[in-house]
Amino acid sequence: MSLAFINIFLSLFTFGIVVAFLGASKLYIAQKLGLNDARMAWLISLNQFSNLLGTLIAGYGLVSISYKLVLGSGFLLIIGSIWLVGTYQIYWPVTIALSGLGLGGSFLNVGSNALLPVLRPNNPSSITNLAHACFGFGALVLPILLTLLLRRFGWRKALNILTFLILIPTLMSLVAFYPTTSNLPNSTNSFSFLANKTILLAMLASFCYVAIEASLATWLTTYLKQAGWNEIKASGFVAFFWLALMVGRLLASSLLTANNGLFLIQLLTLILIITLMSMTTFITLWTSVLSVVMLGFCCAPIFPTLVGVTFAKFDSALSGNIYALVAAVGMGGATILPYIVGRVSSSISIYYGLRILILPASILLLTAFYL
């Protein structure tokens, strides 16, 4: 197993940390900066927009130059951004840091997903779920680790320790050897496949799913707090969402074949809709935690399976361009929907905000029947 292949898993693990960071630290950042849900929602949307922008830059620029460039620069941006959030408790430095965090995370996301089908072209749905389980593991570890570090060391020192830990995969990404674009046959930066039905449907499905996952990752702490848990326990219980996400993707990697991926997306999206309805209607302390677990299991294989099903229909040399399009459209959803959920949460309640997710989930379900 090459170091480049190992770095795919380390990059997705770190991307999981990045995605979970804002959700796990949202209550602390809002308290330190004196922000309500509406203003925090704007910061979250800015972070997601940076992720969208970075996805396009990486997929249609940096990946075509060098895998080492896109992964290495992603890690360095993440390190600098987390350090900035921990050092300055002022609005504009935090705004810049969250933008940098979105850019860095998107570089890791695109670089690793573009490299995966090049190094392992067989059964892309299965291997993508396995790799994305590392994303879930990173997102699982972060809330637990951050809670422990905050209790013992406080905000600034906790984030400095987190920054130091991310230096390890950063160094590994910089010393590895990667395939070059000149070795990839038929590599292209053309948008010509935009007219392809599979690509268009995958983009629509990605818009809906990523918007849902980003909204849940961001606002589940608020949901749990509204259900009656305190801030520390709410942040800790969100780890169950990421645990379920990781376990679900590991299971999917062993169960998926080239023929059953779409059925799995359809089934779990239907259960997701039912869970969203029930969790915002029947609310107790422990049913709120159970709902968080169910959401994680439902979300687990949807996006990596969608990516794998799409990759299987094209040459692996196009994976960077295809993933950039699909993921960028998804980031568009992640930019818009969490902001809307936050606004509704601020003006009415988090329960009404989360009910909005039923609409994109329904569109996702319908789209999966035509992919």
Rank of each mutant, 00 (worst) to 15 (best):
W155R: 04
A195F: 06
L140Y: 09
L184E: 05
P179R: 03
L146V: 09
G138K: 03
T170N: 09
S182N: 08
P185K: 11
L145F: 05
T180Y: 00
S192R: 00
T163Q: 08
H132T: 13
L171A: 12
M172I: 09
F191L: 06
L174C: 14
T170A: 14
L165I: 15
I144H: 02
L200I: 07
A131R: 00
L201V: 15
L142V: 09
R152A: 12
T170R: 04
S190E: 04
A176S: 13
L140Q: 04
F177S: 13
T181P: 01
A131H: 01
S192T: 07
L194F: 00
L165P: 12
S190G: 08
S192I: 10
N196P: 11
R151I: 12
R152K: 13
L146Y: 03
L162G: 09
L145M: 07
P169F: 10
H132K: 10
L150N: 04
A205I: 00
I161Q: 06
S187Y: 03
I168T: 12
I144E: 01
P143L: 03
F153T: 13
L165V: 15
L142G: 05
A205Y: 04
A195G: 13
N129C: 12
L200A: 12
L130W: 02
V175N: 02
A176L: 02
A176M: 08
V175R: 02
L150H: 03
A139I: 00
T188R: 05
P143V: 11
G154L: 12
R151M: 13
A133H: 07
Y209T: 13
S192F: 05
F135L: 14
V141Y: 07
L149H: 01
S192G: 05
L194Q: 01
L159W: 01
L167W: 10
T188C: 05
S187I: 11
I168F: 10
T170F: 09
S173W: 02
I166W: 00
V175F: 03
S182W: 00
W155S: 14
L201W: 06
K157N: 15
F177M: 08
A195M: 02
G138Y: 06
S187D: 02
L171S: 09
T181I: 14
K157H: 15
L149F: 08
L149A: 08
L162W: 02
F191E: 05
S192C: 07
N196V: 12
K157R: 13
G136M: 01
P143I: 07
L140D: 08
A133N: 07
Y178D: 07
S173C: 15
I161K: 04
R156C: 13
M172W: 00
I168V: 13
A202D: 04
F135N: 06
A131S: 15
